[in-house]
Structure formats: C-alpha cells, structure tokens
Write a protein that binds this DNA or RNA. Sequence first.
DNA 1: TTAAAATTGACAATCGTTATCAGTTGGAAT
DNA 2: ATTCCAACTGATAACGATTGTCAATTTTAA
Lengths: 179, 179
Amino acid sequence: MNQTPELTVFSSDTERHQPIQLTTGKNPLEPEKLIRREPVDPKSFKRIIRKMGLKVTQQRMVILQCMSIGRAHVTAQEVFEAVNSQHPEIGFATVYRFLRKLAEHHLVTEVRMGGLPARYELTPRRHHDHLTCVECGQIVEFESPQIEVLQEGVAKEHNFRLTHHVLELYGECPRCQTK
Amino acid sequence: MNQTPELTVFSSDTERHQPIQLTTGKNPLEPEKLIRREPVDPKSFKRIIRKMGLKVTQQRMVILQCMSIGRAHVTAQEVFEAVNSQHPEIGFATVYRFLRKLAEHHLVTEVRMGGLPARYELTPRRHHDHLTCVECGQIVEFESPQIEVLQEGVAKEHNFRLTHHVLELYGECPRCQTK
DNA sequence: TTAAAATTGACAATCGTTATCAGTTGGAAT
DNA sequence: ATTCCAACTGATAACGATTGTCAATTTTAA
C-alpha cells in the first residue's frame, strides 16, 4: 500500500534548519538509528499532506520537518518538544492530532511497548520488528521473513485472515551485559 | 521457573460458588477459552499466597477464586467487577495491587495489546502467544516453537541476551470474515 | 475576495494506573 | 488467648497519556 518513500527525506537548501535533537528528559535512550537522508524541498511535505486529503498548514509543515530529523522512534511528547523549541505557538494537541492522522494514513507507525507512551516512526519502506534493550532502551530493528512466513501459517491454521502483527523482542544489549 | 500449576485449579465441594461471568460492559468479547478444571479446596490459594511471602487475607482469597473461573484473559476492571458483585466491600485498589503482586511472582501474565487496558491471564504451563480478531476481540492462543527458535537466532545475531518477547497476531476470525 | 469548511490552541475531560494515608487486620511472639 | 507491629486495606487523590470541546483563526475552492 502507501509505503511512501517521500517522508524519508528532508528540507531544502534555501531554508537552514539546525538539527533538532529529539530527546527524552526522563528516559534518555542510548544512541540509536538516526534519520539522515538526502535533503529535499518542502514541496514534498505539501504533496504528502495533500495526498492525505488535508489542508497544508504551517504547523503541519513544521511537524513533518521535525520528524524527518533526529531519532527514529519518538514519542508525541518528544515531537512536541522539538516543534515547540522552534515554534512555541504550536500546541500539543495539534502535534497529537497530526500524528494520529499520519498513523491513519500509514505514513507513520505507532509502536507501543508495555505501558510506555507510544512511539512513532516513519513507516519503513520494508517491514521490520524491534529488539529492545530492557536496560538502556536501545532499539534495534530487524527483519525476519522466515518468522513472517510462520506467522501466516499460524493464522491459516486457525482460518484467520492476518491483518498485522506486533513482534517485540526484549533482552540485554551487548553493552549492558558487560556492565 | 515458577510455572505453578496450582493456580489452574479451583474451589472445594464444601463451598458452593456460582460461576461468575467475567464480562466487559463496553467491549463484550466473543466466547473464548474459559478456565474450567477439577475443583480444589481453598487451601491451595493459601499456599499460593504464602509462597509469595504475603499475608492470607479474605480479599486475596476472593480475588483468586474469581480469577480461577470464567474468561481466560481479563482486565483488572473485569476482575474487580466479579469480585465486587460478591463482595462490594472490596476495593478497586486492592484488586489492582494484588494483580501486580501476582504478576511480579509470575503467577499471572500481563498481556498488553495496543493502547487497550492490560489483560491478565493465569500464567500458562506452556508459553504461548495470541492471535486476536480485530473485529470481535476473540483471542486464540497458539504455540510456535519454530518462531521461538528464530527469535533466539535474531537475538544472537545482535548479541542480545533475550529475556522475553511479545508476539500478537491480528486478523479476522473465520466467523467475522463471513459477515 | 469571499465564504464555507477545516484547523488550531487552550484547556478540560477521560482513561488506566499508581501513590498516599489513616484505619484495620493477620499472624508471630508472648 | 492476648498483644503488637508490620502488612494490608479502602477511599481518594494524583498521575501521565491521550482525547474531546469550542471559540477563534486559517486554508482553499469558487
């Protein structure tokens, strides 16, 4: 479906954006995969928003901009803080609402782990699951087509038509094991 | 570890318990696996509670009793309602706290799906995962040792020491597909 | 340019869950 | 059996994440 590659890119050269560090105050994560791809001009953002059938607003442009830099898995709070640091006039609810819209349209994917706040990531071109360190919170992405095949098998056994799945592995990362 | 089989059983013949229907008002589930095993006397419950290093209270006895009948996957709210219908004097917090204790001691397992309230199930003798119908909420349990093996493989690749995992498959059950 | 419809920001409300605290109770020690 | 203290309880407040409300503003099609 709409595995849009457009969201994986970023800002024009004409505008200068200092990279915004998306961080959690309470729950700092170890360095993890950052999004850094070839810069693109803001027109992509407009196209993306229009494609969703929504109006192009300044707020939405800023949010997309912030999401395309920095950490790969962010909470709504983190996105808001990044947005807010540049545009204090943009409200929390606006960020939340837009994230929901993006999720509805499968442009971002909601990742929920335990009872923790939802994290959002730009919908990856290729489906993957997560391996999370229970100590430091580091998230590693992995793909396992073999597991996917087995999952389909399980569904078929029970005559279910599979729509999606959640697979989250938890463990200690190499670094935390040595501590 | 403590895969206690004791919790899978139930009440003595001397006491008569009408089966308590654990249901959600808002979110009625289709019929799913119920817990029904040979009756046991309440002494098991006492043993279980003592084994956890806790005091045996009337409240805890009632909670265990309610959990050992009815639906396999229940929310704290549902357990509370069942408890409350027989013993209105027992408070919400007590149920919550005890569920947490049970989870700490691995006598029940917390299952979180999406942003929905946590569901608890008596820790199964054999590990299993869940296949959930997105339409009616029916939960089917399944085991896939093959998937488990592949998961270990993934962890090893990244030098993680696996502690646990969450695997939830979602789809349409046979009944809902025909509607 | 204009008007309808969508969007916004501030804020209140909700939900699931957890903490607080004064009063009660279980059970070990007497 | 009685005593005593830590564990437990119930009521309620607090909490964090998320969602709803609504008047004011902005977008965009005409």
